[in-house]
Amino acid sequence: MTTRTAIEAYGLTKRYGDVTALDGLDLVVPEGTVLGLLGPNGAGKTTAVSILTTLLEPDAGEAKVAGADLRTSPELVRERIGLSGQYAAVDEVLTARENLHMIGRLYHLGRARSKQRAVELLERFDLTEAADRPVKGFSGGMRRRIDLAGALVAEPPVLFLDEPTTGLDPRSRIELWGVIRELVSGGSTLLLTTQYLEEADQLADDIVVIDRGKAIANGTADQLKAELGGERVELSVVDAADLPAAREVLARYASGGVEGGEGSRALLVPVEHGIDSLSRVIDGMREAQISLSDIGLRRPTLDDVFLTLTGHGTQSESNDQEVNA
């Protein structure tokens, strides 16, 4: 199987005064795959998307998108991409149909084809009933759908979705995931940014974790989880007085420090040998006569991954003073 790359970027850098928004980011996305660009607010995700969609010029670095060079032929890039941003980039006064029609005309699809695409997309995104109402009255989920439809008007080979579900309620989010999955099964290449770890896990083939403008890890969701300390044993003791003893037992089989205990009866410890480690821990606890109310093997979530990688969790405000610390 030959794989061609739909997006390749090397050393993308963008500074705003003293703040480095992107610090030499490299990205490679093979055709027909989904790359999840994952990071907290202010990590540089939107800057990266803006550069790759020609909205922003990088201070340094080069990139090719859908075979066209970003610097030398941005017009060609624009012909071959679709973009859907964090907020709906449609005209609120126009109706859904008028918006799609206008976008089609601006992709130079011609009058008839633009009309036809608008009808197809309204149908596909379940907006037929609302087609002739101004977008102003749409719900958040409908706005995202019309915006996403806008990105698909010209059936571009490469799609950029910048935080497509931010601000949506859980039900609309899951609906939109369905739409995105369907879209990708049609063979488009997709670069998706998100701050939701679950979203990247659900949708992306590969994930690049980005923090403070740099890629700090990449791989499939499973690879990332495996790379970062693998599995953990989690247990709860019946009697809080057993905690110190339980810690001692755990420490024997652990591949890292024991967490938890303060204020709870639960302990968490990274292990190297999965089930094997788990059964040894159970045996050890039995020998030490510690009774457990619960024990299990837990694979790390992407939240854990993020915490381990950045040391500051996903909620930390990106404090710019710390950038070069």
Partner: peptide, 17 residues
């Protein structure tokens, strides 16, 4: 100021339009 400008900029349309 509105989001529509990002759409326009990402489309292969004339810069003067």
């Amino acid at each position: 100021q509105k989001g529509i400008i990002d759409r326009f900029r990402s489309l292969p349309m004339s810069r003067s339009a």
